[in-house]
């Protein structure tokens, strides 16, 4: 993997979660060790949102957010795709970045194909073929929080679609 650049996302550790009067916790399904530690660390009255499926409909989180007031701190734990979906939902509801802790608990992430504007789940590999337009992509460190995805760009412009 290449070096982190200023747009590469940074995630928090459990110890870095700031003190707040109230917490809301968004947990991706699947019981991880991180989730267990989080539940232990946060106060008993913390509201919890844990969808059943890994690719959850984050708009459900919105219902909980609408009942919250400033002073609420949102902890999001899951893979990068889940984290940024939740974060963008919370931001739209008015929550500021200072009021969220993002805890990366799994490796899943997304790439954005800059040529056809589609998202796709990817592994930690730096090279992947776009499922939508077929271009062979190199995955850069350049990350868009809005899209919750790393930038995928044609790997070899002399052979955009690889050897066929």
């Amino acid at each position: 993997m290449s070096h982190a650049i200023p747009s590469t996302p940074r995630y928090t550790t459990l110890a870095e979660i700031p003190k707040a009067p109230r917490y809301l916790l968004a947990l991706q399904s699947g019981d991880t060790e991180v989730a267990r530690q989080l539940l232990q660390r946060l106060p008993y009255e913390t509201r919890l949102w844990q969808p059943e499926e890994a690719a959850a409909d984050v708009s459900q989180l919105n219902t909980l957010l609408q009942a919250c007031h400033p002073g609420t701190h949102l902890c999001i734990s899951g893979d990068e795709t889940f984290i940024w979906n939740c974060r963008n939902q919370a931001q739209a509801a008015g929550l500021l970045d200072a009021e969220m802790s993002l805890i990366k608990a799994a490796d899943g992430r997304q790439a954005y194909c800059v040529h056809c504007s589609q998202l796709q789940p990817i592994s930690q590999d730096d090279e992947v073929t776009c499922q939508h337009c077929g271009v062979q992509l190199t995955i850069r460190e350049h990350f868009s929080k809005r899209l919750g995805a790393y930038m995928g760009v044609c790997l070899n412009a002399d052979q955009p679609y690889g050897e066929r």
């Binding site: 400033p70 002073g71 500021l96 200072a98």
Partner: peptide
């Protein structure tokens, strides 16, 4: 006191 961050 209410837990509002400065950014608000």
């Amino acid at each position: 006191d209410l837990g509002w961050p400065e950014a608000r």
